[in-house]
């Protein structure tokens, strides 16, 4: 499995964010995307998850365009954006259950409970997520990472709002995924230490 980006250019309105971007990432690799605010990190990630079309260039998943593969590509994908993707009126458990069904994961009730326990929401699973703190909401969104089997994780600022312990835990989860042959692309100011696997960096300059 290789995700390959060739000659990618994106505009936002009249402004050119980046052009002729080339890179690739394969199993067992972690890619940091760096750059100052407004340089197009989120736009790039949204393009990689097919939420946005590039203005020029191609994104290939195993040599086929991700926009042609469409649903077939999306099955390999986990996306966590700025929004947590949680319904405020539903509990963390209900949110996680819906996410699992939407992504075809046949998770048992115990698996869902375990995921929430591991992520540190034990005792909060029955509260509507709207009353949780920002960090707890982020944790609720991240709990899905513990259930998914998808190889390619694309995470936009996954560490935002998390406390030190949660940051450590998320680093371990990401490192574990890479070491098992997964791929992770993320934007962050927080490093993820890896014991095996490879770290790549991409600097966007606008």
């Amino acid at each position: 499995m290789i995700l390959k980006i060739q000659n990618l250019s994106c505009r936002r309105g009249d402004r050119l964010l980046f052009e002729n971007l080339d890179f690739q990432i394969q199993s067992g690799e972690l890619l940091f995307i760096e750059g100052h605010n407004g340089c197009g990190k989120t736009t790039l990630l949204k393009t990689l998850v097919t939420l946005r079309r590039p203005d020029a260039g191609v994104v290939l998943w195993d040599k086929q365009s991700i926009f042609k593969l469409a649903d077939e590509y999306r099955q390999n994908l986990v996306w966590l954006g700025h929004y947590n993707g949680l319904k405020g009126d539903l509990t963390a458990l209900e949110n996680l259950r819906i996410a699992s069904v939407l992504n075809g994961i046949d998770a048992s009730e115990e698996a869902l409970w375990d995921a929430l326990k591991t992520i540190g929401l034990y005792g909060f699973e029955d509260l509507p997520t709207t009353v949780l703190s920002q960090g707890q909401k982020r944790r609720a969104a991240l709990s899905y990472l513990l259930l998914t089997k998808a190889p390619l994780w694309i995470l936009d600022e996954p560490f935002s709002a998390l406390d030190v312990r949660a940051v450590d835990m998320l680093q371990a989860i990401i490192a574990g995924h890479v070491e098992q042959g997964g791929m992770v692309i993320l934007t962050t100011h927080q490093e993820v230490p890896l014991t095996s696997g490879q770290v790549k960096r991409l600097k966007l300059a606008a």
Binding site: L51, L77, W79, K87, G88, V101
Partner: peptide
């Protein structure tokens, strides 16, 4: 507004059913 639509668009299930 809360990003759940993004998750539905990227889900592994046919969007038409959703």
């Amino acid at each position: 507004e809360d990003g759940t639509l993004e998750q539905m668009l990227l889900s592994h299930q046919p969007l038409i059913i959703i």
